[in-house]
Structures are given as C-alpha cells and as structure tokens.
C-alpha cells in the first residue's frame, strides 16, 4: 500500500479531520491533502509526529512504500551535501583571502591550484544537491 492511502486510513481510524492533523503538525490542510494523495511526502520529523499521532511505529507507517523510504534517505543525504557545500564556500573564501596576502610565487601557485580544485569540488557537490 502506498503511503498516501495509509496516512488517510490511519487518520480516519483515529476519527481525525485533515484540519485537526494539520493543526497538530503545524502545517496547512493542503499539505496533509498532498501527502494523502501522494503528491508529496512528509519529511522525517513530520513522519515521526504522524506515527505518534496515529499510534503506529515508524516502521508500520512506512512499510511497503519504498519510494517514501528512498525519499527520506535522499533528504538526509541532501542535508549532508548542503553542509559540505557551505564548508567548500568558506574554504574558497579563505583561499581567496590568502591569495591577496601571499606574495611568494610558489605559494601563490599552490593556492591557485587548491582554489581551482575547490571550485571543481563545489560544482560537483552542487550538481548532486539538485
């Protein structure tokens, strides 16, 4: 069974309306509707709250919906990649500042090399973040 149908079934079993669930999770009613119609998926935090609300374990809630599980894994990976991107941008800034102050030839060449590599790494990370 796909996650949307499961969420709807569980909500109806608990005699809750979409508005009530939306209020408890601090999202809009439209968001709950989107989840139940599989137009989008809840993130991990809201999945945990939904499991608590519907008195199910997370495993029971997600079981059978591989797409949902893959989406959660992808979201977690995206957070890690986002942090790496921020770190690369910061490193870029340090290297550029270093280039401004360094006057020796070979140190400048080394910094430029590192800067180029960092830019490549940043570009590849950004591609995988999309």
């Amino acid at each position: 069974m796909i996650i949307g149908e499961r969420l709807k079934q569980c909500r109806q079993r608990q005699n809750l309306s979409q508005e009530m669930v939306a209020e408890k999770l601090a999202v809009s009613r439209q968001t709950i509707s989107n989840w139940e119609n599989s137009r989008s998926y809840p993130d991990i935090e809201r999945s945990i709250h939904l499991a608590e609300l519907y008195e199910l374990s997370l495993d029971e809630l997600l079981k059978g919906d591989q797409k949902m599980v893959k989406n959660l894994i992808r979201s977690t990976n995206l957070v890690k990649i986002g942090r790496l991107i921020a770190l690369s941008i910061f490193l870029n800034l340090i290297l550029v500042v270093g280039l401004v102050f360094i006057v020796q030839y070979w140190w400048s060449v080394a910094l430029i090399g590192l800067l180029l590599l960092n830019i490549c790494w940043l570009f590849i990370l950004t591609i995988w973040f999309i």
Partner: peptide, 21 residues
C-alpha cells in the same frame, strides 16, 4: 511532487554532467 519527478532521469543527468565537467 512525486508524480512529476523522474529520479532515474535525474540520476542519469547528474552522472553525465559530472563526467563532462
């Protein structure tokens, strides 16, 4: 939106883009 997403095509494009870069 899950219905409009194409994860396989997305992955394929990422690999091709990384290689060409």
């Amino acid at each position: 939106i899950a219905e409009l997403d194409q994860p396989a095509e997305r992955q394929h494009l990422k690999i091709r883009l990384t290689t060409s870069f």
